[in-house]
């Protein structure tokens, strides 16, 4: 699904990301952990062609992202609030994304209603524009919007941050369900080792722009990761 080859990003001579080779298979649930500045968001931005690689390439399903735009139809992402349109209501935002992905209103409504408990009655039908929602509620809208139109690749940056404990549990359940679907590849980054080990089959730890650990989740994974980061 994702193939990264000798990918490097340099700002003014400082290398912030350097990955020789990384392959993520279709259907994998992939967790990315690391400290601040490890390069998690940089990697995601490179996957989405939001920043220009200094060297190397990213291929999604064989499409090199900085050459062709053909990766867009099967990819959905929520990195931060710049993925939201502040002057729309949540419903309008969902419909907008739906239209871009060729979904009619009824399909969007059906999908969104499945997650009504995730929204906890604070978002739908509230007559509020997204810009007037709290940070946590904005995040919920952004995350659910990535599920519209059956994307094959979903990228979520720090989805657990800013969410209340109940919502974190619900989100873990949602991600687990997606992970069980073998057509969906899901990438999640987090600071929280416990969350990541719970939802991901495979975990990559990054440190200063490099991949330092690449493990398939097992009973010992959390302990192993904790030992690694406890410096």
């Amino acid at each position: 699904m994702i193939e990264i080859n000798s990918l490097r990003k340099t700002y003014n001579g400082v290398t912030v990301l350097n990955i020789n080779h990384l392959e993520i298979k279709q259907g994998e649930s992939f967790g990315l952990v690391g400290n601040n500045g490890a390069g998690k968001t940089t990697l995601f931005s490179l996957l989405l062609d939001l920043i220009e690689p200094s060297n190397g390439s990213v291929k999604l399903k064989g499409v090199q992202v900085n050459i062709s735009e053909d990766w867009k139809p099967f990819t959905a992402a929520f990195l931060d609030e710049t993925f939201l349109i502040g002057y729309l209501t949540a419903e309008e935002y969902f419909y907008f994304i739906g239209e871009l992905r060729g979904q009619n209103k009824a399909t969007v409504d059906a999908l969104v209603s499945r997650y009504s408990d995730f929204f906890n009655d604070e978002i739908l039908g509230k007559k509020k524009y997204l810009r007037d929602l709290s940070k946590g509620n904005q995040k919920k809208v952004g995350i659910i919007a990535t599920l519209i139109g059956n994307p094959e690749l979903i990228i979520l940056d720090e989805p657990f941050a800013n969410l209340d404990p109940t919502t974190q549990f619900r989100l873990k359940k949602i991600i687990r369900e997606l992970a069980d679907d073998k057509n969906v590849t899901i990438l999640v980054s987090s600071h929280d080792l416990a969350h990541t080990t719970e939802v991901s089959d495979r975990i990559v730890a990054m440190h200063k722009g490099e991949v330092v650990k690449d493990i398939y989740t097992s009973a010992e994974t959390l302990k192993e990761l904790e030992e690694f980061f406890a410096v």
Binding site: L48, L50, T82
Partner: peptide, 14 residues
């Protein structure tokens, strides 16, 4: 500008 990254990664052609 406020949501340019969304426009650039959504299923939209220039």
């Amino acid at each position: 500008s406020a949501y340019y990254p969304l426009m650039m990664s959504q299923n939209i052609t220039y």
